[in-house]
């Protein structure tokens, strides 16, 4: 499988602030790739480098087999972008903006445009200044999704959308993926990434800290086990890989490293199990493990 996006060791500084500090990112053609990180981690800066709006200080960056800085105009015919904070021209109507951006990208599917306006429930006659934040976002989304672009780059595209519209957004992205489009979806809404993405990259302080499929990432973390036993268990705490153990009579609640699951279950069945609940880690826990406990949070200033 070829790569739509491949970034390695990307470094970008603004003055003395280092926004990207050796970032790696690979998006395979045809996949929906989640790009996760808290505000200030460098998501937007990475995307702006991919779009040739900012120039990389060093590192290798390839986009659709081209150089995003030198070949930007040619590459932009093949992609569509939705910025995180959409500002529109106050005097242009939403419909005008959709047509303008679509045309400048090299064409717009008129049937798809009408369908998307309907599905997103967007009035194209309003002027830019009259739209709410969510509706401005919809204008940019319709413009991007009605294009024939093979790569969609979406920077926190659902900020400001209501849950109903978020669901519409997910459907449309799934349809796009089914048509074979590649999607790079930057987000900090974990449920969205879990619902849509094949693979995920998590970044922090301008560096990639984790990347892989959701399944792979789950292997890296712990399963939560809750069990009701016939009798009180002995010395579970001595088992390697068992954490946060709570024992209340016959009730056991703990977290366990995935490779330590077997010895734990053997010990539990030795005592006798009345009921057992085992939960795989959610992306939420994955995320919190990377960010929640960290106290030496690197400051990356203005950059997102």
């Amino acid at each position: 499988m070829t790569s739509a996006v491949s970034v390695s060791g990307l470094i970008k500084s603004f003055g003395r602030t280092r926004a990207l500090d050796g970032l790696d990112l690979t998006v395979s053609t045809g996949e929906v790739h989640g790009f996760l990180g808290p505000n200030g981690a460098g998501k937007t800066t990475t995307i702006r480098v991919l779009l040739g709006l900012l120039r990389a200080d060093s590192g290798g960056v390839r986009l659709l087999d081209g150089d995003p800085w030198r070949d930007r105009v040619a590459l932009h015919r093949r992609l569509a972008y939705v910025p995180g904070d959409v500002t529109l021209w106050p005097n242009l109507s939403g419909g005008e903006v959709i047509d303008l951006l679509g045309h400048l990208r090299g064409g717009l599917d008129q049937r798809r445009r009408a369908e998307l306006l309907d599905r997103f429930d967007l009035d194209p006659r309003k002027r830019g200044r009259a739209y709410s934040k969510g509706n401005r976002q919809k204008v940019a989304l319709v413009a991007a999704l009605a294009s024939r672009a093979e790569l969609l780059i979406l920077d926190e595209p659902t900020s400001g959308l209501d849950p109903l519209m978020e669901e519409t957004f997910r459907q449309v992205i799934r349809e796009g993926a089914a048509e074979g489009r590649t999607v790079l979806l930057s987000s900090h809404i974990l449920a969205e990434v879990e619902a849509l993405c094949d693979r995920v990259s998590i970044i922090r302080g301008g560096r990639t800290v984790e990347t892989g499929s959701l399944g792979q990432l789950r292997h890296l973390t712990r399963t939560t086990v809750t069990a009701e036993l016939i009798g009180p268990p002995d010395t579970l705490g001595a088992l390697p890989g068992v954490h946060d153990l709570h024992v209340d009579g016959g009730r056991v609640h703990c977290q366990v490293d995935n490779d330590a699951l077997n010895p734990l279950l053997r010990r539990l069945t030795d005592v006798g199990v009345r009921s057992l609940v085992s939960q795989p880690p959610t992306l939420e826990e994955l995320f919190l493990r990377h960010y929640g406990a960290v106290t030496d949070w690197p400051r990356s200033g203005e950059a997102r």
């Binding site: 702006r48 779009l51 040739g52 709006l53 930007r72 105009v73 040619a74 932009h76 015919r77 992609l79 972008y81 910025p83 959409v86 903006v97 951006l101 400048l104 990208r105 090299g106 940019a140």
Partner: peptide, 9 residues
């Protein structure tokens, strides 16, 4: 940003 993310130099 919108305009330069399209095929406009």
């Amino acid at each position: 940003e919108h305009v330069l993310a399209t095929a406009v130099g």
